[in-house]
């Protein structure tokens, strides 16, 4: 009976130990790296929507509060997108002939939803709740960035688990007073820097460092 494996396989098998490790390592590194690129994480990438809505104009320019449109953000898991009735509250009187707003008018008149693309879309196995984060003093801006300066909505953070955990492990670095949650330009004062303020807020809001898997994955 002839040898099943040729003699050269002695060298190959040894080399494969090293090469296999290298290939595996390279694959993992590539995946982890790719996950952090805007191509996958969509950071700084705006998506084409039915209407090019500008937060910069409505929030930064006009000073409309986040909650005028995202009405359920304080009481439920979802911030929720407004119905087109909310848009038409003003736009039945202002910019009534703007071509840009035609989809909004059509939606309102025909009772058809605008098909908006979710910009901050978490995987379906992660259960996020807006209301509790607001009650514990996480500012809108902390996760969503300077929305009042964004002509088109885009992610400013990866929404990776690593990013969630960076705050869940050290909430004191990110918390702000509850009354400043909706303030887009809040900064900790010089008299009371973030380190001191954060520690106080963790204490008074009874913020726990929730890093158990089941906190978000159910």
């Amino acid at each position: 009976m002839t040898q099943l494996f040729h003699k050269s396989f002695n060298t190959l098998s040894k080399a494969s130990i090293v090469l296999g490790g290298l290939v595996a390592g390279l694959t993992v590194t590539t995946v982890l790296f790719a996950n952090r690129t805007p191509y996958i994480s969509l950071v700084d990438v705006s998506r084409e929507q039915p209407v090019p809505f500008s937060h910069k104009h409505h929030v930064g320019g006009l000073g409309i509060d986040c909650r005028y449109c995202h009405t359920s953000v304080e009481t439920s898991a979802q911030a929720s997108l407004p119905s087109t009735k909310t848009c038409m509250t003003c736009h039945s009187s202002i910019w009534t002939n703007a071509a840009m707003l035609e989809p909004v008018r059509q939606s309102y008149m025909n009772d058809r939803s605008l098909e908006w693309l979710k910009v901050h879309d978490l995987p379906d196995f992660a259960y996020f709740n807006h209301s509790i984060h607001i009650k514990k003093g996480v500012g809108c801006q902390t996760c969503h960035g300077q929305v009042d300066q964004m002509p088109l909505m885009m992610r400013k953070n990866t929404l990776n688990m690593e990013w969630c955990l960076s705050c869940h492990r050290e909430p004191e670095k990110f918390l702000r007073p509850r009354e400043e949650v909706f303030n887009m330009n809040w900064k900790p004062s010089h008299e009371k820097p973030q380190a001191q303020l954060g520690a106080e807020l963790v204490e008074s809001y009874q913020v726990q460092k929730l890093t158990n898997c089941a906190t978000c994955h159910r």
């Binding site: 898991a77 929720s80 009772d111 058809r112 939803s113 098909e115 995987p123 379906d124 196995f125």
Partner: peptide, 29 residues
């Protein structure tokens, strides 16, 4: 095997989340 693991089934599960679209109901909601 590596490529197959890139499927997003767990990310995009066949369930409705609030305000998501629907191909089942006539109004798409």
């Amino acid at each position: 095997g590596v490529l197959a693991s890139c499927r997003q089934d767990m990310h995009d599960q066949p369930k409705y989340k609030p305000q998501s679209g629907s191909s089942f109901f006539a109004d798409g909601r």
